[in-house]
Structures are given as C-alpha cells and as structure tokens.
Computed example of a mutant assay.
Amino acid sequence: MSTSTRITLDPLDLAGIDDLLTPEEKAVRSSVRQMCEERIQPYVADWFEQGTLPDPRGLAKELGSLGVLGMHLEGYGCAGMSATDYGLACVELEAVDSGIRSLVSVQGSLAMFAIWRWASEDVKQRWLPAMAAGQAIGCFGLTEPDHGSDPANMRTSARQDGSDWVINGRKMWITNGSIADVAVVWAQTDEGIRGFAVPTDTPGFSAPEIKHKMSLRASITSELVLDDVRVPQEYAFPEVRGLRGPLSCLNEARYGIVWGSLGAARSSLAAALSYSKDREQFGKPIAGFQLTQQKLADMNLELTKGMLLALHLGRRKDAGTLQPVQVSLGKLNNVREAIEICRTARTILGANGISLEYPVIRHMNNLESVLTYEGTVEMHTLVIGQAMTGLAAFR
C-alpha cells in the first residue's frame, strides 16, 4: 500500500473527529458558522462591553430563518433535525458567544420543548410555529431568588379560581425574560408542581432586566414578577405533575451545553494558537517554546476528548438511549474543561488576554455562568455519585 499521500491535519482537530460526521451534519455546521461569522462575530465584543443585545427580535428572526430555533423538535414549523445536528449548531453559536447560544437554547430546549412536550394542542398551535420562526420569543421560569438547585421548594404558587389559574411569585436569572412573548412558568399547586404558558402581556406580569452582570453581557437576563397573574385553564400543562416536567426540559438544555461549551473552548484555543505564532519574545515566536507548546497540546487534548464525548452522547440521544446521568457527565466535564482551556489560553496571550480585542476573556467570563446554570458542579457531581453508588447524597 502506498504511503506517499500526505494527509493535512486540522490543528484544532488532530484526532480527525470530522471524519465521524456525515456530509449533512457538516452542512448544518457550515450554515450556522457562516451566519455567526457574518452576523454576530464582528459585533459581539462591542455588545458584551456595552452589556446589551441591540436587536434581539431581529436576531431571533434570522436564527428562525436559519432553522435553529427548536431545530431538534418535530412539527409545528420546527426543522426536525437530529440531536447531533443541534449539538453542532450549539458549538458554532457558542464559539461566537455563550449569550447567543443561551438565547437559542432557552428558546428551543426550554420554552419550546416545554410547550411541545407538555402543553395542550391549542397552546402548541398558538406558540410553536411563531417561536420556530423567531417571530415570538419564549423564556423559562424555574429558578427563584432563594431556590436554584432545590426547585422542589419553590415559592411561586398557582391556585384555581373558577375556570382560571391565578399565579403569584418571583423567578430569577431568566434569559430572554424582558423580551419574551410567552413565559413557561412552574408553580406549586394543590396537585404538585405544574407548568403554565403565560403570555407576558397578561396583567400582573412584569420582567425587569438584571443589570451589572460581568458574564453573559450580550444576553438579556431578567427577573420575572407575577402578581395575581390570571390565565385560563387551557394555559396549564394538562398532564405533567411534579419535577418531572421542568427536569425533562433542563435535560434538553444541558445536552446543548455539553456541545456549546466546546465552541467557547475552540475559539479560545484558536486565538491562543494564532497569537503564539505571531508574538515574538527572545528572538522567536512564543509558539516555539516548550512550555507554550505544552499548554497548546493540553488544551487540544481536552477539546478533543470533550468533542468525542459530546458526539457519543449525541449519537445516543439520536438512538433514544441517552440517560440523564450521561448528560451530567458531559455537562460537568465539558464546561469544566472549557473554562480551563480559556484560562490557559489567557496565559498565552499575556496582558492581551484581558482585552476584548480577543475573545478569550469574554468566553472565560461567560463560562462562569454556564458552569452554574442548568445544574451546578455540585449537583452534577452528586448525580454521578448516586449513579455509581446507588446512594443519594443530596441531603
């Protein structure tokens, strides 16, 4: 066999993981990457610095036209693509900014999935086609000011009054809250925790935006305030009771993070690699020094392992065999390693690493939020520990 043919390797994919993707999957990735590079990447550092997302509705419509909003859902105007397609899209979205991936993730994997999976047919028909097109924006109200990792003790409540439900409570750290047209709200009832699709123009509903963030600054984060918000019976999710409803949605969102966090890591590694070849010290590029190459190699190893894990979980999800503990494995590992990649990349860039002229410090700050939301390190650690030992250590 001839060995004369020389294979050119991608320095960010030395393992050749791309060979495991189908042409269709690569085409999805290419389309999302092109849109992000043209529409978002040139401006996102300024958005982050200003702490704003200037035209979220316009951006949502563009993302809807691309087909990435609820892209892994079937029917109702959704693209019906595979879980692996969705994961690859998340990588490209988060490679430009975690806030952009959060917008898509909350819209599709939390708000749309909750309605698609649990709402009545009338509610699905009312909201899902518009949400898939980006013409309506959704948010997901679970976390409260005093209850994050322990949603079973949420204080938001809903009581029946005739044929209506009346909801009172507060939700905190809600992506898309101030721009949402519909809020999926989880509340305590006499029947246990139930979900509601609440139009945000309902009297008593407000969503003040949260300011002074140092993370996810190119993303809209809000508090939800519900004061005697009255909604008809048909807006309540008819079948699901307890934490099964919200946790099913969180599992969808966590899956996207398994992939998306690697986009931030890849972007930071690419910036460090490019910078190290241009930056000269002691008469040569710093890429030529052993300690720099060790950092680059270690970052590449962790990115490679994270991508292999994400792809494996994506194939399991497409096969219908993915388990929640496996998502916890992916979320815990990939976000933790992505942050470490970003921090190491920052050291290669030196003082320039803290400048928004480069993406690294922005990704570092964003990933601090990603590490916490959709399950903290502690919670995913205990999920894995329980699966290993058969013993719950949450209390």
Rank of each mutant, 00 (worst) to 15 (best):
M1R: 04
R6L: 14
D13L: 09
L14Y: 07
L14C: 07
L14M: 03
A15I: 09
G16I: 06
D18F: 12
D18Q: 13
D18R: 13
D18C: 10
D19S: 14
L21G: 05
L21Q: 00
E25L: 15
V28S: 04
V28F: 03
V32W: 08
V32Q: 02
R33D: 10
M35Q: 03
I40R: 03
P42M: 14
P42Q: 11
D46Y: 04
W47P: 06
F48T: 10
F48C: 10
F48N: 01
E49Q: 02
E49I: 02
Q50T: 03
A60L: 11
K61H: 10
L66K: 05
V68F: 07
G80C: 07
A83Q: 13
T84H: 06
Y86P: 07
G87W: 07
L88W: 00
L88E: 06
A89L: 08
A89V: 10
E94W: 14
E94P: 09
A95Q: 04
D97R: 11
S98K: 11
R101L: 12
S102G: 13
L103W: 00
V106D: 04
L110Q: 01
R117K: 13
W118F: 10
W118A: 03
S120V: 03
E121L: 05
D122M: 01
G134Q: 09
G134Y: 13
A136I: 05
I137T: 08
C139Q: 02
F140D: 08
L142S: 04
S149T: 14
R155D: 10
W165S: 03
K171E: 04
M172F: 08
W173E: 05
W173G: 01
T175H: 10
G177H: 14
G177T: 15
V182W: 08
A183D: 12
Q188M: 14
T202N: 12
G204H: 02
H212L: 02
S215C: 09
L216M: 14
S219E: 06
R230K: 15
R230A: 13
V240W: 03
G242R: 07
G242F: 00
L243S: 02
P246C: 15
S248A: 15
C249M: 09
C249A: 14
E252Y: 07
A253K: 01
Y255S: 02
V258D: 09
V258M: 03
V258N: 01
L262W: 00
A265V: 07
A265Q: 04
A265H: 05
S268H: 09
A270H: 08
A271I: 11
L273F: 14
L273W: 15
S276N: 08
Q281H: 02
F282W: 13
G283W: 04
G288P: 04
G288H: 00
Q290R: 10
L291D: 15
T292Q: 05
L301M: 09
T304K: 01
K305Y: 09
K305C: 10
M307C: 01
A310G: 12
H312S: 09
G314M: 01
R316P: 05
L322D: 06
L322Q: 10
V325A: 13
Q326R: 11
S328Q: 08
L329A: 05
K331H: 05
R336Y: 14
A338Y: 11
A338E: 11
I341D: 02
T347P: 00
I354L: 07
V360P: 02
H363G: 00
S369K: 13
T372W: 04
E374V: 08
L382V: 03
Q386R: 11
T389C: 04
L391S: 11
A393N: 13
